[in-house]
């Protein structure tokens, strides 16, 4: 089944856009965007098995740590740089985002919302949240950052990034009412002012 986030991302990008997917995993999103929008897509991924899946799908991928891989691209290479479910694993978030704006016009950033009500409940009860979108336990999580929709909006404000669009999702539906409380995931489209 196609995640709602994929459909939304596909709906906002233009036909034949050039797209870089950071942490593209097995390349499912790239493949979906190629199918729906005939994009010219590429990915960066660190996991070897995932890289194999990508190449078997015929995708162009760079086997590298995201933060080390970006300097392999010239300025303004892409219409969109997608950071899908990856930002929470990045060490130097602000320098990486600046680097993304060097190589791409717009950024599409999708991330799990740490302030969703079930996470809040877990914390209230004294436990680190383990949810569908934050599925790891504290000792095996690859995530090193835990942030919320409000946090990300503040970040954009401080960095003077313009928010072109934002979408919020619960499981299988869009959320418009109190997203920081009810949305499991968020998708922001931002650009430099």
């Amino acid at each position: 089944m196609i995640p709602l986030e994929y459909e939304k991302i596909s709906s906002i990008i233009n036909e034949k856009s050039s797209v870089l997917d950071l942490g593209c995993g097995k390349g499912d999103l790239l493949q979906y965007l190629i199918k729906t929008k005939n994009i010219n897509g590429q990915g960066i991924e660190i996991n070897e098995d995932a890289i194999f899946s990508c190449v078997e799908k015929g995708l162009t991928v760079f086997h590298s740590d995201i933060e080390k891989g970006l300097d392999a691209y010239p300025d303004n290479s892409f219409d969109y740089v997608i950071i899908y479910n990856t930002l929470q694993q990045i060490k130097n978030v602000d320098t990486m985002i600046e680097e993304c704006f060097r190589i791409g016009q717009k950024l599409i950033i999708a991330f799990p919302n740490f302030a969703q009500i079930s996470s809040r409940k877990s914390l209230m009860l004294g436990h680190s949240p383990v949810t569908k979108h934050l599925p790891y336990t504290w000792y095996n999580s690859p995530n090193i950052r835990f942030f919320t929709i409000e946090d990300f909006a503040d970040f954009c404000k401080n960095k003077r990034y313009e928010i072109l669009d934002k979408f919020f999702f619960a499981i299988k539906k869009r959320i418009t009412f109190l997203p920081n409380l009810f949305a499991y995931t968020a998708v922001f489209v931002i650009k430099r002012k």
């Binding site: 070897e48 300097d71 392999a72 691209y73 010239p74």
Partner: peptide
């Protein structure tokens, strides 16, 4: 692969 990308070529890199 980096060099090719910087020249705007489509290059896939894998380290096995």
């Amino acid at each position: 692969a980096r060099h090719l990308k910087l020249q705007g070529y489509d290059a896939t890199y894998c380290e096995i």
